[in-house]
Amino acid sequence: MTGQVRPITLVGEPVLHSPCRPVESFDGELAALVDDMFASMYAAEGVGLAANQIGVGLRVFVYDCQDADDRAHKGVLVNPTLVLPEGGDRRLDDGDEGCLSVPGPYAKLARPDRATCHGYDIDGNEITVEGTGLLARCLQHESDHLEGRVYIDRLSGRARKKVLKEYEQLRAEREAENA
């Protein structure tokens, strides 16, 4: 991996709360961005990262995580479209979720236990990624980022306030340690 580690965009920064623009050029610039995204995700010990989490408002995310059968999946999705099960096929997983852009706290968040993303690889070839378990959660979480949503936007008001309070406390502690 040759990418540069970039700072993670934190909750409250405008680029994180606005829908991202479609990628129009599948070129060296996109490849370099994806390399930086993987480097930044690994440095932050994450399992997924959307471009706006490093300040770039483009519809692209990377992931490296396990599915429900503990199989490893690693890749990039450009201009993805998320498809979720409906009706009788829809089962929810109410696991814990966190975010590199809200470092520290986790909260229970029900999401469908399966997800599919249709999109493109970095060369512009059509791809489909189907996920279960953590991979399904990751596909949904990163797709939300591309729409300008952070996972805490899906929480109840009380749960969101609790997560933000914990986040602010941890941030204040880190700042005090670094002072």
Rank of each mutant, 00 (worst) to 15 (best):
A110C: 13
T128V: 14
V15L: 11
L77A: 11
D35K: 13
T132I: 11
D64Y: 02
G88P: 08
H17V: 08
Q66W: 11
S25A: 14
E166S: 15
A159V: 01
D153M: 01
S25G: 03
Y63M: 04
Y151S: 04
G124P: 10
A32S: 15
A179N: 06
Q140Y: 11
M41E: 05
Q140M: 14
L16D: 00
I152K: 02
A50S: 15
P19M: 07
A136P: 06
Y106H: 14
L135W: 05
V129W: 01
C138R: 00
F26Y: 15
L58I: 02
L170E: 12
G95Y: 07
H73Q: 07
A44W: 01
A159M: 12
T2N: 12
Y63N: 11
S25I: 00
L170G: 11
L155Y: 04
L155P: 13
R21A: 15
V34Q: 01
H141P: 04
V23Q: 06
E130V: 11
S143I: 06
P14A: 14
S156Q: 06
G133I: 12
D96R: 08
K74G: 01
A115G: 07
E166F: 07
R21W: 05
R174H: 10
T9H: 05
S101I: 08
A39N: 00
E130S: 14
D121Y: 03
E29G: 15
L146F: 06
L100N: 06
L30Y: 10
F26H: 10
T81P: 01
R158E: 12
D36N: 15
R114L: 07
L146E: 06
D113P: 02
D113R: 05
D67F: 07
V78R: 08
G133C: 08
D64I: 08
L135Y: 01
K108D: 14
E86A: 13
L139N: 03
G104P: 00
Q4Y: 06
E24K: 05
A107K: 04
Y42D: 13
L109R: 06
Q66I: 13
G46W: 02
S18H: 15
R154V: 00
L82T: 08
A72E: 10
V56E: 09
A31G: 04
V15A: 14
P85S: 09
V62L: 07
E173Q: 15
K74Q: 15
E147L: 09
D96G: 09
L77P: 03
V5Q: 12
D94F: 06
L77Y: 07
V56M: 04
F26G: 10
L146T: 13
L77D: 04
L82I: 11
Y167C: 10
R160F: 04
D94T: 09
G46K: 00
F38H: 04
E166R: 14
V78L: 08
V34K: 02
S101V: 01
T128L: 11
T9V: 09
Y151H: 03
N178M: 13
G28C: 05
E177P: 00
E126I: 05
T81S: 10
A110E: 02
G87V: 06
L164G: 09
A31S: 12
D69M: 14
Q66D: 13
C65S: 10
V78H: 03
G3S: 10
T2E: 12
F26M: 03
G119N: 08
